[in-house]
Structure formats: structure tokens, C-alpha cells
């Protein structure tokens, strides 16, 4: 186990769609598992990452916890990868950037149709929202980008097999999609 490539993954302001697409590797996951082991990831439930080779980040940055998580990944991963539209440009969650945060919270928790016992959640356990959702390259240095909503399993496969073989990863035309 000791000389396997260590991979960590997380979803920040994302929908886990990129993780689901990763799981679409299906039987290729068995092949992959011979070469890599997973550190921090929703797949393992490990809560913090330690020295890793590759970090895959899904989602943009929408709250203070996202910032801490992203920095932890940057600190511990030799190669950090922005996975999917949200990590790259904020994606769907960033569409709240055009509405003031107070209005968003009021609509969701105070004035929205069907809201009972209206109150804006303020438990200390809850991470504070940022005023805007940002892509992750604005917070830490990113080494590679895998566009797509989500990137297909073939994109993950091509990227990881290139990297594991010591090649500079390259995505052919058919593998590059923003949708």
C-alpha cells in the first residue's frame, strides 16, 4: 500500500455531480484502485487530508468552511485539480452573485412561500456565507482543470491515467465540454 499514489477529493459549493461522474468509471475503478488509494474523500469518510499526491476539488467557494478546506487541500496535495464548472467559474451556485446575500437569505428563510417559524439560521456551527461565490483559482494555486458539468468519467480516466503514467495530461477535443 505504501507506494500507491494518494488521492483526496472533496465537494465545496457543488452538487456532488462530479463525484457521481467519477463513480461512472465503473469497472475501471478496480483498475484505478490498484494504482491509487484514497485519503480524505466522501468515498472514505476520512475527515482531514495528510500528504497526498493528487487533490480533486469539486465546487466553488461559497462559505468560510470551503476556504479552510481548500487551503488544507492545497497544503497537503502536490497536484491540485479544479474539477467541473463550479470549481472553474463558480457555476450554478455563483448565479446568486447577482442578488444581495441578505435578499437570498430573506427569500429562503423569512419571506419565501411556505416558510414556517421564519428565522435566519445563525448557529455557531454553521459556516458563514461569503458575499459572492468564487472559483477556486482565486483562492489557491490550481495545477490542472477538468471542465464539464460534470466532466465525463472518460475525462477523469484520461487525466488520471496520463498523470499516473508520468505523461502531461491532455484532453482531446471530444473530452472538453463546458456543459
Amino acid at each position: 500500500m505504501a507506494n500507491k499514489i494518494r488521492v483526496a477529493t472533496t465537494s465545496l459549493a457543488g452538487c456532488f455531480g462530479c463525484h457521481m461522474s467519477f463513480l461512472d468509471l465503473d469497472e475501471r475503478l478496480v483498475q484505478l484502485a490498484e494504482l491509487v488509494e484514497f485519503d480524505r474523500s466522501p468515498i472514505t469518510d476520512i475527515e482531514h487530508c495528510t500528504d497526498c499526491d493528487i487533490g480533486l476539488i469539486e465546487g466553488g467557494v461559497c462559505n468560510s468552511e470551503n476556504v479552510h478546506t481548500l487551503r488544507e487541500f492545497r497544503k497537503n496535495c502536490k497536484i491540485l485539480v479544479a474539477v467541473g464548472a463550479c470549481a472553474i467559474n463558480g457555476g450554478l451556485p455563483a448565479m446568486r452573485n447577482f442578488i444581495p446575500l441578505e435578499e437570498c437569505l430573506s427569500e429562503a428563510y423569512l419571506d419565501g412561500i411556505g416558510v414556517e417559524n421564519p428565522q435566519i439560521p445563525s448557529d455557531v456551527e454553521l459556516p458563514l456565507l461569503l458575499d459572492k461565490v468564487r472559483p477556486i483559482h482565486e483562492v489557491v494555486k490550481i495545477d490542472y482543470y477538468l471542465p464539464g458539468c460534470p466532466p465525463s468519467a472518460d475525462v477523469f480516466w484520461k487525466f488520471l491515467t496520463d498523470l499516473l503514467a508520468g505523461r502531461e495530461p491532455e484532453l482531446d477535443y471530444e473530452l472538453v465540454h463546458y456543459d
Binding site: I88, G90, F98, R134, H137, E138, I142, Y145
Partner: peptide, 13 residues
């Protein structure tokens, strides 16, 4: 083969 936006995003209204 543009894979990222490179620059900070403006998010203009």
C-alpha cells in the same frame, strides 16, 4: 483548448 478562466471573474450585474 481553453480549460480555465485564468483571470478573476467580474460577475457583472
Amino acid at each position: 483548448n481553453m480549460l480555465d478562466d485564468h483571470f478573476p471573474l467580474f460577475y457583472p450585474n
